[in-house]
């Protein structure tokens, strides 16, 4: 009997942590299946046969053309934005050692949104490609501001979260102000800002693709460095890691990914917070597993949110950002309470 108690008491690494490949593969398959299904959901009636036809290149009839022209870019974008936000959040949580860190919590999302909007309104007809650098600068500035305001001999997790909320609110106010001041030019900006995948075309996909293709593999390659940073500054330096340099570079990558996501899909909240959390819960703290897992959870959340927004009340479109906020808000509060204790 006592042996049974001991066996129960001694917690060992979970199956998912020892065989991450199998579970990760299943998640990937689930995401692909869900993507195919989501191609058929929406205002127009498209059957799975049409989807199949479209995907194999048989784009003869109208339904298949709808799939290729309208649905496919959205689903691809859901993948890329989900990956970007999930990985960005995972890196921030790892580097700042803060379970509440995420692109939207530390102000990056709204900062990027504000800067992007400023550019769109200042120079009408600006292509979205140019929004990415502006969003990047805005996101970086917001993150720096939050860190400076939260810093008092180190910055505690809850402090960063609270200051982040305040700074985000200020940028949100700035965005509203721009909208009110420029009522005639806002339509493009508004579409961009709602945090939706509605009406995005293949060009949006191509705008975010290089960022994801370059930065995500780089971060995965650096995953052990992220693990080492988690051991504390002194031990990490003792293990030969140039702590400050690595930290700054990784944060830069994370802000860039989040800014690229904001530039193509507007401000979609909470994906960058929740996806890394789910990933760590299931796959443990090693970043070589939890970073790809955060990407996959991000994809699942985005596809789910976009599909729900399209399918709940067609032809009405509920922005994906609204869906993620409804799901993510309570989850964030739960984390805040848990971390604050």
């Amino acid at each position: 009997m006592s042996a049974a108690i001991v066996a129960q008491h001694v917690r060992r690494t979970s199956l998912a942590q020892r065989y991450p490949g199998i579970l990760m593969g299943s998640l990937g398959v689930l995401a692909v299946v869900l993507s195919f299904y989501s191609l058929s959901v929406g205002a127009t009636d498209v059957s799975m046969t049409d989807v199949f036809n479209a995907v194999i290149g048989n784009t003869g009839d109208q339904a298949a053309q709808i799939v290729v022209q309208f649905q496919l870019p959205r689903v691809l974008l859901a993948w890329l934005v989900g990956i970007a936000l999930g990985v960005s959040g995972a890196v921030m949580q790892g580097v700042i050692r803060n379970p509440l860190a995420a692109p939207d919590v530390v102000g990056v999302t709204k900062g990027a949104g504000f800067a992007g909007m400023l550019l769109l309104l200042a120079i009408p007809g600006m292509p979205v490609v140019a929004v990415v650098p502006a969003a990047f600068a805005g996101g970086l500035a917001a993150a720096a501001l939050v860190y400076l305001l939260a810093y008092r001999r180190g910055a505690t997790p809850v402090r960063i979260a609270l200051v982040g909320i305040a700074v985000s609110a200020a940028f949100e106010a700035g965005i509203r102000f721009l909208l009110v001041r420029n009522p005639l030019d806002v339509s493009a900006a508004l579409i961009w800002l709602t945090g939706s995948l509605f009406g995005r075309s293949m060009s949006s996909v191509l705008e975010i693709l290089p960022w994801v293709l370059v930065l995500v593999p780089l971060i995965v390659v650096w995953s052990r460095r992220l693990d080492v940073l988690g051991l504390g500054d002194d031990l990490a330096a003792g293990l030969g890691e140039p702590v400050e340099r690595t930290r700054r570079l990784l944060l830069l990558f994370a802000v860039a990914l989040a800014a690229a996501a904001v530039a193509v899909s507007g401000t979609i909240g909470f994906v960058g917070l929740i996806a890394p959390h789910m990933a760590r819960r299931v796959f443990g703290g090693k970043h070589v597993a939890s970073i790809p897992a955060a990407a996959l959870f991000g994809v699942l959340l985005m596809i789910f949110a976009d599909m729900l927004g399209r399918g709940l009340a067609p032809p009405l479109e509920i922005p994906a950002g609204l869906v993620t906020a409804v799901v993510g808000g309570p989850y964030f509060l739960y984390l805040l309470v848990k971390t604050g204790k």
Partner: peptide
Amino acid sequence: PTKEVARLLAILPQVLVTPESIS
């Protein structure tokens, strides 16, 4: 370089951060 030092000398700091659920 810090990496070279780490191959010659090990340091165990006083304050240690245990990553969550690590074996």
